[in-house]
Design a binder for these strands. Structure first.
Lengths: 108, 108
DNA sequence: GATGCACATGTAGAGAGTCTACCTATAGCG
DNA sequence: CGCTATAGGTAGACTCTCTACATGTGCATC
């Protein structure tokens, strides 16, 4: 998910605040099970996003377990919009380059 | 272009052998000018791909200038096919997760 | 004839991001 | 008592890409 993880996390949090573990599960669910990110990838990303002001986190205890719940900040919402625009641009560029060349003699 | 550069380079070379500078120009052309990769990104990538056996390179001199021309190997063609499959999978996963959630009460 | 741009290739080092592997702790079930 | 699911985290390695620098030719312009 090189470089696109931030957008995916922000996108999941657009539905409402969630804690880290739930974010991982939501990513799995939304991707139809294809996305099984290790905690060692997601937790540092969440802290990074919080440091960057795109998320705000707060501790709570639910059922005897500590949770850190993250909420999208206004900056986070803007960042999400930017990420979506970036993805749109990025994917169309990759498609354009990666698309197999039409065979010689065949008009595009 | 994190992680996708290799596929883009291989894709350009599918048209036929090219030297590094021409690869950079072809990437620009195919992307409609959006992709302006610095030489410090492309040249190391080419050497990496050659070391990995996906490209074979050979020197020649054209108009007093040294060129290293790269050709797709059989392994390179297989790698390209794999990259295209990866991209397809990857992009559909990102789309699925990044797509804005439908507003509550509105059926999907 | 000097200057600058397009052509052409490369290296060094920094920085970012993701992964593997590890660690801790609780709740609940068998 | 041990296992699994839940919940959070760190350390270190690794890979890739970027910036900046270095080198040199051919050709057009001043």
């Amino acid at each position: 998910m090189r470089g696109h993880l931030d957008g995916l996390i922000l996108s999941v949090l657009e539905d409402g605040p969630r804690h880290g573990y739930a974010i991982i599960e939501a990513l799995q669910a939304r991707s139809g099970g294809a996305l099984d990110l290790p905690t060692g990838t997601v937790y540092p990303a969440l802290r990074r996003l919080e440091r960057a002001g795109r998320l705000s986190g707060s501790w709570s205890t639910v059922g005897g377990r500590e949770r850190r719940t993250y909420t999208l900040t206004r900056a986070g919402r803007h960042a999400l919009a930017a990420q979506r625009a970036d993805w749109s641009e990025f994917s169309s560029v990759v498609e354009a380059v990666l698309r197999p060349p039409r065979p010689a003699g065949e008009p595009s």
